[in-house]
Amino acid sequence: MIQLQNVTVNYGNEWIALYQVSLCVNKGEFVFIVGPTGAGKSTLLKLLYREETATQGTVRVAGHDLNHMPSREVPLFRRRLGIVFQDFGLLPNKTVYENVAFALRVTGESSRTIRRKVPHVLEMVGLAHRPDAFPHQLSGGEQQRVAIARALVNDPPLLLADEPTGNLDPDTSLGIVQLLHHINVRGTTVIVATHDHTIVDRMQRRVVALERGRLVRDDQQGAYRPLLMLSEPMRS
Protein backbone atom coordinates (compact mmCIF):
# COMPACT_ATOMS: atom_id res chain seq x y z
CA MET A 1 0.00 0.00 0.00
CA ILE A 2 2.76 2.42 1.04
CA GLN A 3 6.42 2.41 0.13
CA LEU A 4 8.85 5.10 1.25
CA GLN A 5 12.43 4.81 0.08
CA ASN A 6 15.16 6.97 1.62
CA VAL A 7 12.81 9.91 1.91
CA THR A 8 14.17 13.26 3.00
CA VAL A 9 11.96 16.35 3.43
CA ASN A 10 13.48 19.79 3.82
CA TYR A 11 11.51 22.87 4.80
CA GLY A 12 13.27 25.77 3.18
CA ASN A 13 16.95 25.17 2.64
CA GLU A 14 17.91 24.49 6.21
CA TRP A 15 15.40 22.53 8.21
CA ILE A 16 15.31 18.78 7.74
CA ALA A 17 11.92 17.46 8.89
CA LEU A 18 12.52 13.89 7.72
CA TYR A 19 15.85 12.29 6.97
CA GLN A 20 16.41 9.10 4.96
CA VAL A 21 13.19 7.42 6.05
CA SER A 22 12.32 4.06 4.50
CA LEU A 23 9.04 2.41 5.39
CA CYS A 24 6.76 -0.20 3.91
CA VAL A 25 3.14 -0.68 4.94
CA ASN A 26 1.04 -3.50 3.54
CA LYS A 27 -2.62 -3.44 2.70
CA GLY A 28 -4.76 -4.01 5.79
CA GLU A 29 -2.12 -3.06 8.35
CA PHE A 30 -2.67 -0.85 11.39
CA VAL A 31 0.34 1.35 12.15
CA PHE A 32 1.03 3.85 14.91
CA ILE A 33 3.57 6.55 14.20
CA VAL A 34 4.91 7.87 17.49
CA GLY A 35 7.55 10.32 18.58
CA PRO A 36 7.99 13.56 20.50
CA THR A 37 6.72 16.89 19.26
CA GLY A 38 8.49 18.06 16.12
CA ALA A 39 9.73 14.55 15.29
CA GLY A 40 8.15 14.66 11.84
CA LYS A 41 4.96 12.63 12.30
CA SER A 42 2.68 15.13 10.60
CA THR A 43 5.23 15.64 7.85
CA LEU A 44 5.24 11.92 7.18
CA LEU A 45 1.44 11.88 6.86
CA LYS A 46 1.47 15.00 4.67
CA LEU A 47 3.81 13.18 2.34
CA LEU A 48 1.25 10.38 2.03
CA TYR A 49 -1.60 12.67 0.98
CA ARG A 50 0.76 14.85 -1.02
CA GLU A 51 0.46 18.11 0.83
CA GLU A 52 4.25 17.89 0.96
CA THR A 53 6.55 16.27 -1.56
CA ALA A 54 9.81 14.50 -0.87
CA THR A 55 12.97 16.51 -1.42
CA GLN A 56 14.75 13.22 -1.98
CA GLY A 57 13.64 9.61 -2.28
CA THR A 58 10.45 8.08 -3.60
CA VAL A 59 6.94 7.91 -2.13
CA ARG A 60 4.47 5.40 -3.51
CA VAL A 61 0.90 5.21 -2.22
CA ALA A 62 -1.71 2.82 -3.62
CA GLY A 63 0.37 2.31 -6.72
CA HIS A 64 0.94 6.03 -7.43
CA ASP A 65 4.35 7.65 -7.55
CA LEU A 66 3.52 10.85 -5.69
CA ASN A 67 6.65 12.69 -6.77
CA HIS A 68 5.55 12.55 -10.37
CA MET A 69 1.81 12.82 -10.05
CA PRO A 70 0.31 15.54 -12.29
CA SER A 71 -1.56 18.09 -10.16
CA ARG A 72 -4.71 17.35 -12.17
CA GLU A 73 -4.79 13.83 -10.71
CA VAL A 74 -4.16 14.87 -7.11
CA PRO A 75 -7.83 15.58 -6.20
CA LEU A 76 -8.90 12.17 -7.54
CA PHE A 77 -6.12 10.50 -5.58
CA ARG A 78 -7.10 12.26 -2.34
CA ARG A 79 -10.75 11.21 -2.67
CA ARG A 80 -9.66 7.64 -2.10
CA LEU A 81 -8.05 8.54 1.23
CA GLY A 82 -9.64 9.38 4.54
CA ILE A 83 -7.68 12.10 6.29
CA VAL A 84 -8.07 13.33 9.86
CA PHE A 85 -6.06 16.53 10.14
CA GLN A 86 -4.23 17.50 13.30
CA ASP A 87 -6.02 20.89 13.18
CA PHE A 88 -9.34 19.17 12.20
CA GLY A 89 -9.66 21.28 9.04
CA LEU A 90 -13.40 21.77 9.35
CA LEU A 91 -15.12 24.31 7.13
CA PRO A 92 -16.21 27.02 9.58
CA ASN A 93 -19.24 28.15 7.57
CA LYS A 94 -20.70 24.69 7.29
CA THR A 95 -22.67 22.66 9.78
CA VAL A 96 -21.52 19.28 11.06
CA TYR A 97 -23.73 17.55 8.51
CA GLU A 98 -22.51 19.72 5.62
CA ASN A 99 -18.87 19.25 6.61
CA VAL A 100 -19.21 15.49 6.44
CA ALA A 101 -21.34 15.64 3.31
CA PHE A 102 -18.74 17.83 1.60
CA ALA A 103 -16.35 14.88 1.25
CA LEU A 104 -19.09 13.11 -0.72
CA ARG A 105 -20.09 16.24 -2.65
CA VAL A 106 -16.63 16.64 -4.13
CA THR A 107 -16.88 13.16 -5.58
CA GLY A 108 -20.20 14.05 -7.24
CA GLU A 109 -22.17 11.62 -5.07
CA SER A 110 -25.96 11.87 -5.39
CA SER A 111 -27.97 13.61 -2.69
CA ARG A 112 -29.67 10.31 -1.96
CA THR A 113 -26.42 8.54 -1.14
CA ILE A 114 -25.39 11.52 0.96
CA ARG A 115 -28.62 11.42 2.97
CA ARG A 116 -28.04 7.74 3.60
CA LYS A 117 -24.33 7.77 4.49
CA VAL A 118 -23.86 10.95 6.53
CA PRO A 119 -26.24 10.15 9.43
CA HIS A 120 -24.68 6.71 9.55
CA VAL A 121 -21.11 7.94 10.16
CA LEU A 122 -22.33 10.62 12.54
CA GLU A 123 -23.93 7.81 14.50
CA MET A 124 -20.64 5.91 14.45
CA VAL A 125 -18.69 8.80 16.00
CA GLY A 126 -21.49 9.64 18.43
CA LEU A 127 -22.57 12.97 16.96
CA ALA A 128 -25.93 11.99 15.51
CA HIS A 129 -27.68 14.43 17.83
CA ARG A 130 -25.90 17.58 16.58
CA PRO A 131 -25.96 17.58 12.77
CA ASP A 132 -26.90 21.28 12.54
CA ALA A 133 -24.24 22.70 14.85
CA PHE A 134 -21.45 24.81 13.40
CA PRO A 135 -17.85 23.90 14.31
CA HIS A 136 -17.43 26.91 16.61
CA GLN A 137 -20.42 25.67 18.62
CA LEU A 138 -18.69 22.37 19.38
CA SER A 139 -16.07 21.37 21.93
CA GLY A 140 -12.60 20.43 20.70
CA GLY A 141 -13.35 16.75 21.11
CA GLU A 142 -16.62 17.02 19.21
CA GLN A 143 -14.90 18.86 16.36
CA GLN A 144 -12.35 16.08 16.25
CA ARG A 145 -15.11 13.51 15.89
CA VAL A 146 -16.60 15.47 13.00
CA ALA A 147 -13.19 15.37 11.35
CA ILE A 148 -13.10 11.61 11.86
CA ALA A 149 -16.60 11.18 10.48
CA ARG A 150 -15.64 13.12 7.36
CA ALA A 151 -12.60 10.91 6.87
CA LEU A 152 -14.70 7.75 7.18
CA VAL A 153 -17.69 8.67 5.10
CA ASN A 154 -16.04 7.71 1.79
CA ASP A 155 -15.17 4.18 2.96
CA PRO A 156 -11.54 4.89 2.02
CA PRO A 157 -9.07 2.04 1.47
CA LEU A 158 -6.45 4.07 3.35
CA LEU A 159 -7.12 6.13 6.48
CA LEU A 160 -4.54 8.65 7.70
CA ALA A 161 -5.19 10.13 11.14
CA ASP A 162 -3.02 12.81 12.72
CA GLU A 163 -3.58 12.88 16.51
CA PRO A 164 -7.19 11.66 16.26
CA THR A 165 -7.43 11.44 20.06
CA GLY A 166 -5.51 14.60 20.86
CA ASN A 167 -8.48 16.38 22.45
CA LEU A 168 -10.44 13.48 23.86
CA ASP A 169 -10.74 12.09 27.35
CA PRO A 170 -9.28 8.58 27.87
CA ASP A 171 -12.62 6.77 27.55
CA THR A 172 -13.63 8.56 24.38
CA SER A 173 -10.11 8.09 23.02
CA LEU A 174 -10.43 4.40 23.48
CA GLY A 175 -13.82 4.47 21.80
CA ILE A 176 -12.29 6.23 18.78
CA VAL A 177 -9.40 3.81 18.60
CA GLN A 178 -11.77 0.90 18.77
CA LEU A 179 -13.69 2.50 15.93
CA LEU A 180 -10.46 2.74 13.93
CA HIS A 181 -9.70 -0.87 14.79
CA HIS A 182 -13.16 -1.89 13.63
CA ILE A 183 -12.61 -0.12 10.32
CA ASN A 184 -9.21 -1.77 10.02
CA VAL A 185 -10.74 -5.18 10.51
CA ARG A 186 -13.08 -4.48 7.61
CA GLY A 187 -10.02 -4.10 5.38
CA THR A 188 -8.97 -0.46 5.55
CA THR A 189 -5.29 0.28 6.03
CA VAL A 190 -4.98 2.66 9.01
CA ILE A 191 -2.07 4.92 9.93
CA VAL A 192 -2.29 6.91 13.14
CA ALA A 193 0.20 9.53 14.29
CA THR A 194 -0.02 10.05 18.03
CA HIS A 195 1.70 10.69 21.32
CA ASP A 196 -1.01 8.98 23.31
CA HIS A 197 0.77 6.20 25.28
CA THR A 198 -2.37 4.60 26.56
CA ILE A 199 -3.90 3.72 23.26
CA VAL A 200 -0.63 2.58 21.71
CA ASP A 201 0.21 0.33 24.63
CA ARG A 202 -3.30 -0.99 24.79
CA MET A 203 -3.63 -1.85 21.09
CA GLN A 204 -0.35 -3.72 20.70
CA ARG A 205 -0.07 -3.01 16.99
CA ARG A 206 2.82 -2.08 14.75
CA VAL A 207 4.69 1.00 16.06
CA VAL A 208 6.99 3.20 13.97
CA ALA A 209 8.96 5.68 16.07
CA LEU A 210 10.43 8.91 14.72
CA GLU A 211 12.93 11.13 16.46
CA ARG A 212 14.16 14.38 15.00
CA GLY A 213 13.19 13.25 11.53
CA ARG A 214 14.79 9.84 11.71
CA LEU A 215 13.05 6.49 11.87
CA VAL A 216 14.47 4.98 15.07
CA ARG A 217 12.24 1.97 15.66
CA ASP A 218 9.76 -0.26 13.85
CA ASP A 219 8.14 -2.90 16.08
CA GLN A 220 5.52 -5.30 14.75
CA GLN A 221 3.68 -5.46 18.09
CA GLY A 222 5.00 -2.54 20.04
CA ALA A 223 4.39 -0.23 22.94
CA TYR A 224 4.82 3.53 23.01
CA ARG A 225 8.26 3.23 24.58
CA PRO A 226 10.70 0.54 23.59
CA LEU A 227 11.04 -2.24 26.14
CA LEU A 228 14.70 -1.34 26.52
CA MET A 229 13.80 2.17 27.65
CA LEU A 230 11.09 0.91 29.98
CA SER A 231 13.62 -1.27 31.72
CA GLU A 232 16.20 1.47 31.98
CA PRO A 233 14.94 3.02 35.24
CA MET A 234 14.97 -0.42 36.80
CA ARG A 235 18.58 -0.94 35.91
CA SER A 236 19.84 2.28 37.42
Binding site: Y49, I83, F85, G89, L90, P92, N93, F102, V106
Partner: peptide, 15 residues
Protein backbone atom coordinates in the same frame (compact mmCIF):
# COMPACT_ATOMS: atom_id res chain seq x y z
CA UNK B 1 -7.63 27.88 4.95
CA UNK B 2 -11.05 26.72 3.90
CA UNK B 3 -9.88 26.51 0.31
CA UNK B 4 -6.85 24.49 1.43
CA UNK B 5 -9.08 22.07 3.34
CA UNK B 6 -11.34 21.65 0.31
CA UNK B 7 -8.30 20.83 -1.79
CA UNK B 8 -7.11 18.30 0.78
CA UNK B 9 -10.40 16.42 0.83
CA UNK B 10 -10.21 16.09 -2.95
CA UNK B 11 -12.13 19.03 -4.41
CA UNK B 12 -11.03 19.93 -7.94
CA UNK B 13 -10.07 23.55 -8.65
CA UNK B 14 -13.23 23.97 -10.73
CA UNK B 15 -15.39 22.77 -7.84
Amino acid sequence: REIRTMQLVGATPGF
